[in-house]
Amino acid sequence: MAMSREEIFENVRETLVDALAVEPDEVTEDATLTGDLGAESIDFLDIVFRLEKSFNIKIPRGELFPDDLLNNPEYVENGKFTSQGLERIKGAMPHADFTDFENDPDVNKMTDLFTVKTLINYIESKVA
């Protein structure tokens, strides 16, 4: 039976509480993993492992958190995503909300795309 969005959210919340040692009420849909929940780069790998186990799914490398974009000069120029790069990342992350990012595609703001909602959307697409 397919999981409801609420059930997915609860599982994601539990995963992030364990992985990042945050309080459950800090894990809101809009919270960013890096900015609000204090995730470091190594935590992203931990989160992937935990989500795979918790939801019994396989998360191929780069599918949830694309990792091959920043070093490509066609995609990033002067610290900003090019229009080509923006198209690429939007294609790679259909589960993320690009409303704010499109206005200022600064690479330093890329981590803002990784919100709790992004995780829930991704998991929802995997368990559907």
Binding site: S41, I42, F44, L45, D46, D67, D68, L70, N71
Partner: peptide, 12 residues
């Protein structure tokens, strides 16, 4: 524990 194969790190 968690281990990284560091040549494949997400930070590149």
């Amino acid at each position: 524990l968690m281990f990284s194969h560091i040549d494949h790190n997400v930070s590149g």
